[in-house]
Write a protein that binds this DNA or RNA. Structure first.
Lengths: 349, 349
DNA sequence: AAGCTTTGCGATAACCTTTGCGGACACAAA
DNA sequence: TTTGTGTCCGCAAAGGTTATCGCAAAGCTT
């Protein structure tokens, strides 16, 4: 057998019956006699027959494919969310088609285009950092193509979204720093247009106010979330006349870059500078000192996004889910001046 | 327009011409008059027409999709290779369908099955750790379905493969340890059946011999490459009557686990135990102390795998590519007893 | 003017599957 | 003999696209 895949036609020819008989036999249609069914199924099995999804897709007008667009593939956060999406999609018999925008607005638009050309049934997207217009998504809404955003979102209310409790989490970080004894708390955020920047910044400011700390514009830095850009931001902070004694990085990449910058300045964590990241469990425990961080339930976030996707497909429902983060205190924020190595770690919920 | 996608039929009805005319107009067939072409193209553009890939796939018997199976998605190594594959596939106008085996033989077989049902044109695979039979791949060979392995490979000679220069690299690691002054060099490998285990172990032994060091079976440990299993292996090594003064971990996960185990024993890296990993650039520099490691050109490995895939499709060519690794010396192997913090780092090729 | 080529377009088959409809046959009831 | 009732199966359409072939009208040659 040279052909890669057998079709109903092949089976029909082999058995000297019509294609429809073969189809119905395989689908257990009552019109077909038990003997015929058995004969057909036996041959189909031995030939590794499986229905051609292209033909089915054409017929049923569904491809059972979901397009997923992420800023990049190698960041643990996205990889983990994708794993979550994939896990749920698999249960539903769907495949995912992955495209990465490389944080580029242009590439994001192209990816939307390409995935639609591939006839995915809808998209699950995390916005690129550059994205400042929503036209390419508006078009999807018009055509009623299912769309779900996660983490970096837009068009809330009109599109299903999964986000973290960003504002809450950031406020908790500030309170944690305060309780540990830090007083000049800096925040390194990402691009303005991203909701995660806005929300976490808002939480940061709320947290300062709640702790009775003054708001110092110098301490609210910004970067484009790349390693180099984050390190540059941290260098600026450390070069201030009154440098911060604690830093909250908006995500994992930023936190690690900040760590390097602190080391380059010859400073100690946590005694001279406290550090908290917004990151995942795995990396936090690998670095030294272990990083206090707001941990994301990333895999769950992916599964929730997929759930919303299917709600959208099946019930045309649009909904926003907020996943709860946890602040896990580790050594990097153990307190200024005096290092407390033996101090038991605690978790704030 | 309620329908999600316009078809040739829709355009034809709108323009009061036949479907074939529309098709030919869009494909610049010489039989069609320039005026007609322009009219058709204009309408097609305004309607966002794009050919239905399902229909094309059915007709041309090609789906322009590549199946990719990896042990997991969240390990940086795999994510990076996938990014490489995706980058090359995109240039060729192909999409990739990703499935993860979760290191399970059973799931790997299911994934092969599922991806074939989805009618991918071929597979790019990194074997699961448990895989001890090649039947599911033999079937692909019989049906002449393109197949490429990377990193963890089998059926060499009959299937295109991309591997690292494992034996060489491992031998270099041993020599590096030796030159730094370490003498009891341990190796923590993965499951026996994996080529990477075998090859790196072989290199380790060759390296020992080349340095005139004795081969001590106690120092050749094994684990299943999970974090816990690797840590357990390291604990066993450190509990030996004569514990090692240097450890070579077979990959990044193992190296990080070893790091934790060393810390738990209250030992210092590199003064009391030297450490070298087989890992990627990014993580090595994030941990403390920075990890000496054999760095993989992971993204390139992905691109090469994709290249081999298309060679296989276009020219039926089967070929093996070995990518060169680099041993990048950092602090974790700076030498026993005396720490040399200011020592300039060097790179051995 | 008759026969030829060229130009421009339509009809149809093929790729594979499902499904409504209808046909053929056997057998029982009227 | 006719009508009715199953049982089993084939035909054809639909879904979108392209390639092959065919057809008609127009322009050209001799």
């Amino acid at each position: 057998m040279n052909k890669r895949h057998v079709s109903l036609k092949d089976l029909a020819r082999e058995l000297q019956v019509s294609i429809s008989t073969v189809s119905r036999a395989l689908n257990d249609h009552p019109d077909i006699s038990p003997e015929m069914k058995e004969k057909v199924k036996k041959l189909a099995d031995s030939c590794h027959y499986s229905p051609n999804p292209l033909a089915m897709g054409l017929l049923k007008q569904e491809t059972r494919m979901i397009g997923v667009i992420v800023p990049d593939l190698v960041t643990h956060f996205y990889a983990s969310v994708i794993a979550g999406i994939e896990s749920y999609a698999k249960e539903k018999g769907y495949f995912i088609l992955i495209a990465s925008s490389n944080e580029s607005f242009q590439k994001e638009k192209e990816s939307v285009e390409n995935l639609l050309k591939a006839r995915v049934e809808g998209l699950i997207v995390c916005l690129s950092q550059e994205t400042n217009s929503t036209d390419h998504f508006e078009r999807l809404l018009e055509q009623e193509i299912p769309l779900v955003f996660f983490d970096r979102v837009c068009l809330q209310g009109r599109v299903s979204c999964v986000t973290a409790d960003n504002t809450d989490a950031a406020a908790k970080v500030v309170r944690h720093f305060f309780e540990q004894g830090y007083r000049r708390i800096a925040f390194i955020s990402g691009p303005q247009q991203l909701n995660i920047s806005k929300e976490r910044r808002e939480g940061y400011l709320l947290g300062l106010k709640a702790c009775g700390l003054p708001e110092d514009p110098d301490l609210a830095e910004q970067c484009n979330m790349s390693h180099d850009s984050a390190r540059a931001a941290m260098h600026r902070l450390l070069s201030l006349p009154q440098p911060p004694d604690a830093v909250f990085g908006i995500n994992d990449t930023v936190a690690f870059a900040v760590m390097k910058a602190i080391r380059q300045h010859g400073l100690q964590i946590p005694s001279q500078v406290g550090l908290v990241g917004f990151t995942d469990e795995f990396h936090s425990t690998v670095v030294e000192p272990p990083l206090t961080s707001v941990t994301h339930p990333t895999f769950k976030m992916g599964r929730k996004a997929a759930e919303l996707f299917f709600e959208n497909i099946e019930k045309k429902e649009v909904r926003t889910i907020t996943v709860r983060t946890r602040l896990v205190a580790r050594e990097s924020s153990a307190g200024p001046e005096v290092t407390v190595p033996g101090k038991p770690l605690h978790s704030i919920d």
